[in-house]
Nucleic acid binder design. Structure first.
Length: 132
DNA sequence: CGATTGACGTACG
DNA sequence: TCGTACGCCAATC
């Protein structure tokens, strides 16, 4: 393959296209949308949300999306999202280190040592409970 | 611009 | 069952 043209053409490559920006925003919003659907007094996991959105191996991105969850309207109940073991791995991202546990306690969820008690029963799987 | 770092989860020995 | 490796990918160093 021969590329014609003797000029040294320095093309400016956009760092991010509008489409990419849209998909990113869409992914974030999808995460937020699912989290808002979590019933009060129930919890789910980052992986379950990722799986539900079709990106089963990008559970980390769900956690990353939660980073901005505090500044999003309407409010996102981020405290209802824990890791797959029912551990409150995101507690340090709340206003105080005990805020997440307090919010869960308000909904009747018992937390001991950063672990959701009776996690298996309270677990809410969007892929199973929702059928979109 | 390459390396490192996570609110994670699965695979493998 | 436990520890390690790796995929994921935006952000940060």
């Amino acid at each position: 393959m021969v590329i014609a043209g003797g000029e040294n053409l320095l093309l400016e490559i956009p760092t991010m296209t509008a489409a990419e920006d849209n998909s990113l925003e869409s992914f974030f919003n999808q995460v937020y949308a699912v989290v808002r659907l979590i019933p009060k007094g129930r919890v789910t996991s980052y992986g379950a949300i990722a799986k539900y959105l079709g990106t089963a191996r990008s559970s980390r991105m769900v956690g990353w999306a939660m980073n901005g969850s505090h500044t999003v309207r309407p409010k996102v109940p981020a405290h209802r999202v824990v890791n797959r073991n029912g551990l409150l791995t995101g507690k340090n991202h709340f206003s105080t280190s005990t805020r997440m546990e307090e919010l869960l306690a308000q909904e009747g969820i018992d937390v001991k040592n950063d672990q959701v008690q009776d996690f298996k029963r309270l677990y809410w799987d969007p892929a199973a409970e929702l059928a979109i």
